[in-house]
Simulated scan of single mutants.
Amino acid sequence: MPSFDVVSEVDLAEVDNAVQNVAREISVRYDFKNSKSSLEHKDGVLTVFADDDLKLKQMHEIIRGQLHKRGIEPGMLDEQTVEPAAGMSVRQKIVIKQGLEKELAKKIVKDIKSAKMKVQVAIQGEELRVTGKKRDDLQGAIQFIKDLGLDQPVQFKNFRD
Rank of each mutant, 00 (worst) to 15 (best):
L46P: 00
D43L: 15
T47K: 15
Y30M: 12
K55G: 10
D31T: 01
F32L: 06
D52W: 10
H41C: 15
F49S: 07
L56W: 01
K36N: 12
R29M: 04
E40G: 14
K55Y: 12
L54N: 06
L54V: 05
R29K: 14
K33Q: 08
Q58H: 13
G44W: 07
L54Y: 13
L54R: 07
Y30S: 13
H41K: 07
R29L: 06
S37K: 15
K42N: 12
F32S: 02
L54D: 11
S35W: 01
K42G: 09
D51Q: 12
V48G: 02
V48F: 05
K36D: 11
T47W: 14
F49M: 04
K36I: 07
D43R: 10
L46G: 04
D53L: 10
K57H: 10
D43S: 11
S38I: 04
F49Q: 09
D51N: 08
D53P: 13
K33P: 00
D52F: 12
H41T: 14
L54C: 04
N34K: 15
K55N: 13
L56C: 01
D51V: 03
A50L: 04
S35I: 02
V48K: 14
R29Y: 01
S37A: 04
F49A: 09
K33I: 01
F49W: 11
A50H: 01
K33N: 03
D52L: 03
D31I: 00
K57A: 15
N34F: 14
S37R: 12
S38R: 07
K55P: 01
K36T: 14
Y30W: 14
D51Y: 02
K42F: 12
Q58K: 15
M59G: 02
N34T: 11
D51L: 08
F32E: 01
Q58T: 08
K33S: 04
L46F: 06
L46H: 04
L39T: 00
Q58W: 10
H41G: 04
T47H: 05
Y30E: 13
F32Q: 05
K57E: 11
N34Q: 06
K57R: 06
S35H: 13
D43K: 12
K33G: 01
Q58I: 09
S38V: 11
E40F: 08
K36H: 02
K55L: 07
V45W: 15
T47Q: 13
A50V: 01
E40Y: 11
K57I: 14
D31K: 03
H41S: 06
D43H: 03
Y30N: 02
G44K: 05
K33C: 01
L46M: 03
Y30D: 06
K42L: 08
K42M: 15
S35A: 08
K55V: 04
L39N: 02
K55R: 06
S37W: 12
L56G: 00
F32M: 09
Q58M: 05
L54P: 00
H41E: 09
K33R: 10
K42W: 11
G44A: 09
D53F: 05
L54S: 13
Y30G: 03
N34L: 09
E40D: 11
F49E: 02
D31C: 00
K42C: 13
V48W: 03
L39D: 00
Y30Q: 05
R29P: 00
D31A: 10
